[in-house]
């Protein structure tokens, strides 16, 4: 009986149907996963490359990185400081949300790109102090508009770097490989 119901699967056409079905499920899964990995919609299609190419330093807009845990997003007054003097601010479609936000004194709702899970307590300051450059983790901003992560910020990646930096310093190594350095 059972064989009769599923018998058609063993016919050539049935095998092709099975293959198509399998591929559909697989591609749906891949699409679904890629959705979760894609950069989310930002309120402004912010061109990092253009700003960096003007010679603006990372720390000009994200000054928190040298001081403490959070690099921070710039206030719109900071954006406006330059943009109010620029012709393009009036004409560009891309900049409309900025103009609107400034006019209404409403914050721009950015979607953070470089984030770590909540159980990780990350602090920018010691990394900058240890001579790590922004692009070492965040990638080359001359190449992207909206920031993209060049790699997944997972623990193996963190630890590799921590290990490399502490090869000849056992005390530092203890500190950098300690669970409690990042998890509490």
């Amino acid at each position: 009986m059972i064989k009769n119901i599923f018998g058609w699967l063993f016919s050539p056409l049935g095998r092709i149907a099975l293959l198509i079905g399998g591929l559909t499920v697989l591609s749906l899964a891949v699409w679904g996963i890629s959705l979760t990995q894609a950069s989310p919609e930002q309120p402004i299609q912010f061109p990092h490359n253009r700003h960096v190419n003007f010679g603006i330093q990372c720390l000009y807009c994200h000054p928190g990185a040298s001081r403490g845990p959070v690099a921070g997003l710039p206030t719109q007054t900071k954006c406006w400081g330059c943009h109010q003097q620029m012709q393009i601010t009036e004409t560009s479609e891309l900049l409309k949300p900025l103009v609107q936000a400034v006019e209404n004194n409403e914050p721009i709702q950015w979607v953070p790109v470089a984030i770590v899970p909540d159980f990780v307590q990350f602090n920018h300051r010691p990394h900058i102090a240890a001579g790590v450059n922004c692009e070492d983790c965040h990638g080359d901003m001359t190449q992207v508009t909206i920031a993209e992560n060049p790699q997944v910020f997972n623990m193996g990646w963190c630890l590799n770097c921590h290990k490399e930096h502490s090869v000849d310093n056992p005390e530092l190594r203890t500190k950098l490989l300690d669970c409690g350095t990042c998890h509490y």
Partner: peptide, 8 residues
């Protein structure tokens, strides 16, 4: 924690 000598 070897660095802080605490239980984590």
């Amino acid at each position: 924690s070897p660095a802080e000598d605490l239980n984590l």
